[in-house]
Write a protein that binds this DNA or RNA. Structure first.
Lengths: 342, 342
DNA sequence: GTGAAAGCGCTAACAT
DNA sequence: ATGTTAGCGCTTTCAC
């Protein structure tokens, strides 16, 4: 049964040496047209394909990228996974998926496991790493890229959107909208995205001499966002915000649902809601969520470029943090300030 | 730099042979407590982990499962991926992701690539396989499992929900709801899920001596579903359905949006909408989509069980098609027949 | 229980 | 251009 076809078998059938077979299947190796022909014919007949794992052992390149991702529940990530996988596939790499929760200890353990697969690179999506393990990866010569998360550890590549700038834009937008009581629902406090978005948002308020009316935490989690929305808005009009910035679309959509269907409030009539990410469902007609777009395509593109460069030219690649622009997308979930256009 | 820590290095440090190190890290191998102790200590100091690829070469087991998936856009799949990956991870396996479109030729090519990674098993999610390649997999001793797709090829495991039964339930439900003009929006016609759901649906109508009022195709694709909904409902009341079964939730949500926000129709006042899958967003308060639940958890569980059995005991495993129940979930997107309860 | 040795399937010098 | 040879890091006989 487990009749693995090997290069040796092809070689015998083609009447050449085993290394000749290898060369035919190695891009940029020298083989005469005649040999190549014979080998390809024999290979086709036998259904031969080079064993990537064996190739990896000797070449030191597995063409596998480890992806560690915390929650696919956040709809931003399936999109990222799809794009990342496509882009990498186009370059002959594939993604080995590892799931984890967000605690650092766990992530460290997972990354060790990833390392055991001799991956050529690691993408950490919304996951952080201890500096200890970061240096282990570096020592092992495996480049690490933080996707949508930044960390002050040298040697790590990172790609994020301009979370501070995005947060600031939201602040300025809500201020311009003439809102009196501006609230904020935070994501998981351990996340750099959460911290940066909030920091930018508060900068904008500060600059206008204004203060946050109230704040709660949704932890980037459905249930906790639900609860946070209820706590924040189950009160008389004067005690609840008339605008809220929610640190992620996934949470913002839930907040909208609570406002409209649990509490009977109008969005944006009673409350303006703004999110962050621009996940696909943010543009669904039932929501039309005003949000900050994280350009998944651009972020993935930058990530792939940086990672492959680090893999293929380990010396010339200086790890750096790439920040892509974050654009405010105006839809109908938030009151439009005078003079602004969609 | 690329300082890979090998078993040999650990052996030297621990003052034992390389095979002793191997034994310590091989479950069920014999090593004295003292040796094990020494080895573990040395390994910890060096940060050693067995190279899974090297292990795979000699043992013939890579502990990698290839997952081929067509579209992550359908929100059923991220959920499946997450659950599948979790379940497999718990058993020490990991998922190598391959993206593809749905055409058979392409899928065949991808599966060949998957095979090259010496995966222990293959999961095809919403993807079909030529019988030729199916036997290649069988010859290679690599079990294949079709997830959410069935095919009349021997040697393939398959796990689906009871699509025929689910479709029938929807038919009976809409009939009981007293609808006069019942429409259907189909998924991609090449998909067994699409065919089975429609077949069941029509069975129910037939049994009541009723006919489909109209039919269009959304191809499980956002844009085409949008267009299909418009075509079907941009007409006077008597010429458009008062109920529609949409072959997948992903399309059904779009149809609801078109009905409500493009055409100003009320759901379920003017039109009842029923979907299939019960994706997470189907239960969002803005939609409350009545649908047929495909129990992702159960389907994944069955898949993992079947696949691991086929991997670990190749002889005792007879490939079979497992069908899990499909339950109708009543929400408010469709008129409730008299006497029925949510 | 432990070490020596063979070899998984392949690539990469090294000769020729 | 092609064959020969030596490993990549590991598991697995096989002696002891």
């Amino acid at each position: 049964m487990a009749e693995r076809v090997t290069a040796q078998m092809v070689a015998e059938r083609a009447g050449v040496s085993q290394s000749a077979v290898s060369r035919v299947f190695t891009p940029g190796a020298s083989a005469s047209p005649r040999t190549a022909e014979k080998v390809r014919k024999a290979a086709a007949e036998l259904g031969y394909r080079p064993n990537i794992l064996a190739r990896a052992m000797v070449s030191g390149r597995s063409r596998i990228i480890g992806l560690v991702v915390a929650y696919l529940e956040n709809l931003f990530y399936p999109e990222v996974l799809e794009r990342l996988s496509s882009a990498l596939q186009a370059q002959g790499y594939h993604i080995l998926v590892f799931l984890t929760s967000q605690t650092e200890k766990d992530a460290d353990e997972i990354v060790e496991e990833v390392l055991a697969y001799q991956v050529d690179g690691i993408v950490l999506a919304s996951v952080s790493l201890s500096s200890d393990l970061a240096s282990r990866c570096q020592a092992a010569g495996v480049p690490v890229l933080l996707f949508n998360r930044s960390q002050d550890i040298s040697g790590l590549n990172a790609v994020t959107s301009d979370n501070v700038g995005g947060g600031r834009k939201v602040g300025e937008f809500l201020l311009a909208g003439g809102h009196d009581r501006i609230g904020y629902i935070a994501g998981w406090e351990g996340a750099s995205t959460q911290r940066d978005r909030e920091a930018g948002f508060r900068q904008a308020l500060d600059a206008a001499g204004r203060e946050l009316f109230c704040r709660d935490v949704g932890d980037f989690d459905s249930e906790r966002s639900f609860a946070a929305a209820r706590r924040m808005f189950s009160r008389p009009e004067s005690e609840r915000p008339d605008a809220v910035f929610v640190a992620g679309d996934h949470m913002a959509l839930i907040v909208m649902d609570v406002l409209r269907f649990e509490l009977g409030l109008s969005v944006p009539g009673d409350v303006s809601v703004v999110g962050y990410d621009d996940v696909p469902s943010a543009s669904w007609l039932a929501y039309q969520l005003t949000t900050v777009r994280q350009p998944a395509d651009l972020m993935v593109e930058k990530s792939v470029t940086a990672l492959l460069k680090a893999i293929e030219r380990p010396d010339s690649a200086i790890p750096k943090h790439e920040v892509v622009g974050a654009e405010l997308i105006l839809r109908s979930s938030a009151r439009l300030p005078e003079g602004w256009k969609r």
